[in-house]
Design a protein around this nucleic acid. Sequence first.
RNA 1: GCACCGUUCGUCUAGGGGUUAGGACACCGCUCUUUCACAGCGGUAACACGGGUUCAAUUCCCGUACGGUGUACCA
Length: 482
Amino acid sequence: MKTRVRFAPSPTGFLHIGSLRTALYNYLFAKGLGGTLILRVEDTDRTRLVEGALEEQIESLAWAGVVFDEGPHVGGNFGPYVQSERFDLYREHGMILVENGSAYYAFDTAEELDSMRQRQQAAGIAPKYDRSSMRNQYTLGEQETARLLAENADHVIRLKVPIGTEIRFTDAIRGDVVVNGKEIDDQILLKSDGFPTYHLANIVDDHLMEITHVIRAEEWLPSTPKHILLYKAFGWEPPIFAHVPLLLNPDRSKMSKRHGDTHVKDFRQKGYFPEALVNFVALLGWNPGTDQELFSMSELIEKFSLDRVHKAGAVFDFKKLEWVKQEYIKMMDPTILAARILPDLEKAGYPRIEIDYVAKVIALLRERISFLTDLVEFGDYLFSDTLAEVSSETLATIKANAELVTALTAFANGLTPEAIADADAFKTYSQQIASDAGMKMGAIMKPLRLAVTHREVGADIQQTLMLLGADRCKTRIVDFIR
RNA sequence: GCACCGUUCGUCUAGGGGUUAGGACACCGCUCUUUCACAGCGGUAACACGGGUUCAAUUCCCGUACGGUGUACCA
């Protein structure tokens, strides 16, 4: 049987970083097995819909490199892939369960349910639908139920959880899980607005879409027994379940409960590379059992397996993400990086931004920047002859030093391309200047850097001068001490 | 409260009946460096606790503690 997995988000907001990881694991799992990844939109809660959320989620996923074989945006043979467009299907399936005795009508109002829960809490028992005392098919009787339905009274359909059963299933990550039937609530399957709840829609769609593995977040683990019950009630074979551990805040609470940078778009806007974010997030809860830390997407696909997914939640460590991001800046092809930063350089209005040249700049400065976008400011003197402002005190101090001014002038006057062509030539040349001026090298290098770049820190000075070219350096030094 | 899931350095993790418990990030120190970085080397640091099983338990079993999730006409 062909492996088919799905990622099933609700379009209620931006794509969460934890959702990215769940989607990624589904993607890696499917691709590693030559299977199919499906996007299914779970929009059955009509009150929580957010305009544009679906588009944003698909876009963020695509940015990260998670692509779908089937879904509302790409089509497929198992559609529609949006649950609100499958409305009739759920009602039909709900009726099947009512007819075979696995589900029943209930007419309770929200207030009635509230007071039921309050009574239960006061009595110190677990809040759970009380089939024997509430207003439903069983307590009301056949005739009254038929009458209420005929007059279109508000009603829901609830799952009739068989008493005295034990539900067990094997989770691909956690092993055997056993739950006593008496712990399971008579879950609502169809709401009074006619829409299904997650539980029903999920099972119907997973079955109809021939999903073989349900890889989802750990928060679903407690409701999985309900799902198993539903499969039984339909007489269907359940898929294999795999509940991945949660992503945690530093205080170990669920990461989605944190406000701040938990959306993929936040990382994207800050300038993280998708490759780095994916790499980092993949390792939160999974590892191949080797010392390798850096993986391309194809390596992840090749190595990923569910049995190496951890059971415990993982704290999202921003410091480690920083490191991964830095590794990518250092190892990615400078030309590719140049292409990515080009729009920002253009926006800054810099004149010297031919791609090959920008690639050279990146190769020179990549170890000193945190984000590629830092280059716009950090490397300004390489892209333009309009230089940063040097403070007047600094300038005055340098100009007041006659020896230094003489040395810098001499440096500029004698400067040739050969003198800065390599480290040795540069050393020879500057030592000559220094000894002529009766100064130490160290006393000249810092002012030289300042004169040419107008900045106090930067890459190796000889390489900087070489990239700039002798003429440009000359002009800048002369302008600086004038 | 109840149910379920979990617990190896601060963090991500490897490991697994007999190991000096391994790696990575972070942190600290040293080296390199005419800046800032990078790089290299070294260091601090962990099996939650209590019982059992066993010649031997961090590893298996049972409890306890702690943490997380769930407990909706949300997903």
